[in-house]
Amino acid sequence: MKRAAFLDHVSWTGAGIVWTLGAAGVLRAIPAEAAASHTGGFSFVQISDSHIGFTRPENPDVAATLQKTVDAINALPQQPAFVMHTGDITHLATPAQFDAAKQILSTLRAPLVTLPGEHDVIGTPANYFAAFGNADAPKGWSSWDRGGIHFLSLVNVFDFEISGKLGDEQLAFAENDLAAQKASTPIVVFAHVPLFALFPDWGWTTIDGTRLIAALRRFDAATVLNGHVHQVAQHTDGNIRFATASATAYPQPAPGTAPKPGPLMVPHEALLGRLGYRSVTIEPRRGLQYTDRALA
């Protein structure tokens, strides 16, 4: 699938929210060539939902598609400051699956940052922490400054009830952390499950996400980047922009187009067009922009 068709495909309307792409002031997709020409600007990459260990016909070789994603990122003319994996690195959270994922992700040229999805903490988060634990994030969540942006990496799968959940302790951390930032500082928040009500019927929301959203309202520009739903879906709420990312493993149906969420079978030749990564750039006058790029 061509990139234009890919972008076309991800524009849809559902659940009473209008999803837009490329609209003024919303999320602009810029051509890869243009992104590459802006050398010197700060950039990072988001990847998500690799499900290492998944073997079903929807994608019998998830290791290969993750490696293909890594190779594409490594080939970018300007290497990103870091690559953020927004969870579901593995399918069943076994040590062997974490090992396999780590081997592939260790071939990234850029530094890797991760957060867990619900598939990474099945039964216990211990295997995730053993493989991808970070001293700067002893409980899984953390914040840092880079390239003029304040980043917040959150975990909304530790108490995975019907939907994502952040919990009081983490919300207090996020609220205190954000309170210390200037309103003019661009904020980027990462979490696995969408922090807004994308499609609650399928659990595609975070039940206490509204508290975080309230803390983001005073900022001139906040961007919330999630995974979990294996497709690009975008939403704007005041100065807060939300966007879920494509998976590197397999697509899922658009909300409400199937009885339940789950792996979506597409023709073999169309699969790479439904998988991809997101590159994000920020420049002084243009602000934060990103491009969702399919693997084919």
Partner: peptide, 22 residues
């Protein structure tokens, strides 16, 4: 019997299948 992985987990955590693949 689903295409998707599931778990069988007691609410009181007294039993847990761990990840149960298709």
């Amino acid at each position: 019997g689903d295409d998707e992985a599931h778990t069988v987990t007691a609410v009181d955590k007294s039993f847990d299948s761990a990840g149960l693949d298709s």
